[in-house]
Amino acid sequence: MRKFLLAAVATLALGSAAMAQGHADRGPHGAPMQDIVGIHAELMLAERTVTVHLYDESGSPVPAAGYTGSALVGSGQGRQVVQLAPTTENTMAGTAQAALPRGAALTLQIRNPAGRSGQARF
């Protein structure tokens, strides 16, 4: 009985952690967010525009000056690269040549001002 209760408590704890993690995967704008090179990048797509908002661990905006990036958008046999550049205080954006397909796989690569780079898949 004791083992059963311990297993039940552990299962509930893991379920709560998973739910909390899922909630934390969304940024302030409600879009998916992942860690890349020490920052949180929130990815937003609209028509032909790729927008990335940058935040620190506490959720405060990180100035985009000095950051560069690109997004590789793939759908079926088609692929396109969208170059990202700082646009506003904590935002980088770029425009694709063609409309972004719904449900396309996207790999985001960001290079910070110190020259470190990283990537995440959305």
Rank of each mutant, 00 (worst) to 15 (best):
T87P: 01
Q34H: 13
S60K: 13
M44C: 10
I39E: 02
G118V: 11
S70Y: 07
P63H: 02
G30M: 08
P86T: 11
E89K: 10
S117G: 08
A98P: 00
L72F: 05
G69R: 09
S117C: 06
L100D: 04
S70G: 13
A85S: 14
V81L: 12
R102D: 13
I110E: 01
Y67D: 02
F122G: 04
P63I: 06
T11F: 09
G78A: 15
Q80F: 05
A64C: 04
A10V: 10
E89F: 14
M92E: 00
V82E: 01
P113Y: 06
V50Y: 02
Q80V: 02
A104L: 10
I110S: 03
P101C: 11
E57G: 10
A99C: 00
Q83R: 13
Q83W: 00
G118M: 03
D25M: 09
V52D: 02
A31V: 02
V52E: 04
L84T: 08
F122V: 07
M44R: 15
G30I: 10
T95F: 02
L14W: 02
E47T: 13
Y67P: 05
G27I: 06
L72E: 12
T49Q: 13
A65I: 04
A17C: 02
S16L: 07
T51M: 07
Q21M: 03
G69T: 08
N112Q: 11
A114Q: 14
H40R: 15
G69Q: 03
G103L: 09
D56I: 09
L45N: 05
R116A: 13
A18T: 01
L100C: 09
T107D: 07
